[in-house]
Design a protein around this nucleic acid. Sequence first.
DNA 1: GATTTTTCTTAGCTTTTGTTATCGTCGGGG
DNA 2: CCCCGACGATAACAAAAGCTAAGAAAAATC
Lengths: 194, 194
Amino acid sequence: MHLLLAYLRRFVPTLTEAEWQLLAGAVRPAHLARGQHFVQAGDYRPEIALLLQGSCRLYYLRPSGEERTTYFFFENHLLADYPSCLLGQPSQLNIQALTDTDLLVFDYAVLRQLYDECPAYERFGRVLAEYHLLGTDARLTEQLMLSPEERYRALLASGKTKILERVPQHLVANYLGVTPVSLSRIRARVARGR
Amino acid sequence: MHLLLAYLRRFVPTLTEAEWQLLAGAVRPAHLARGQHFVQAGDYRPEIALLLQGSCRLYYLRPSGEERTTYFFFENHLLADYPSCLLGQPSQLNIQALTDTDLLVFDYAVLRQLYDECPAYERFGRVLAEYHLLGTDARLTEQLMLSPEERYRALLASGKTKILERVPQHLVANYLGVTPVSLSRIRARVARGR
DNA sequence: GATTTTTCTTAGCTTTTGTTATCGTCGGGG
DNA sequence: CCCCGACGATAACAAAAGCTAAGAAAAATC
């Protein structure tokens, strides 16, 4: 529980105990078994969760039926279907546990309410959105600027090597925007050629 | 000037005249001649502007020297180097006028100050970041899910055809993550094969 | 209105990626 | 303990994209 408080304070250091209590009552623990979904396309259950232990992936289902994994979640990161929460629409994406996963869950409606009632949470919402925007923007830029091989090298050099260590390679391939076969070739090139 | 007020109210409908005056005093008109820069890599001049008339592009300079255009701005959209403002660091990107352009400019520091002083602006900051996050996220997803040809078709089908009408094609190619030559081929394919 | 300059298309060739399929390995479940 | 399914490497082929260059078309400049 204090991990969620610590998370909030990373974004809003001034958050008081009293302010924390406004949210704390709405928080409940939850568990996902490996393979189980936190969000599934078509659902509308706007919830946010702090990932305490484990890992999840975010993926889309293409019309053809294949899955495309575009994001990973690890410890101490928020799990949410941002578009669904913000637009108030059913999910178009899926979030699934890659391993057994422990969460702290609360309803987005509660946070939305706190935006109106408590400036500290409104600030949290702003800073959180800004933080995610920076990350998403950097990744989009990388996608537009770099070749697949450069993107793989960039991932190696980045602080995100957790992804490479904890995620099956064919999902990393999706994440980098290439096919699994292609990533395997790129890895072979990078390994030999240096 | 009222266009900026209208912009703010699109995000915060409840913004009062008094609240608007808190920002209004800091706003100044500006003009960019075609080819002139609003932001240049290495600068640190955190400003935000509403684009009144004209168009701009956002581009990065690669080590090799070529430019990669990743975004376009048109009327009634905000112009800003979000990463530079948020991180308080010099710009790594460039924003340049594609045509003669009229702006309303204010310093990010003023807005940052208003985040502390006026809840309506903090809300504006949150909703603005959320709005941009949704857009960037959708574009990243498109980039990871769709082939270049599919992305071109998606652009045709989207509400962003302004880009195709008002921007040189080799910049659109960058925006879609392909080379100009490749986009030309894709267009030929789409035109013939329908 | 003529002349640069920029932009777009097309072509030929190379490189990379996508596709499909096979094989080896590893792990879990029966 | 064995078998099956998931995962990754590799190969062969097809398709697409990158690169270079040349020429046509359109725009901007003078």
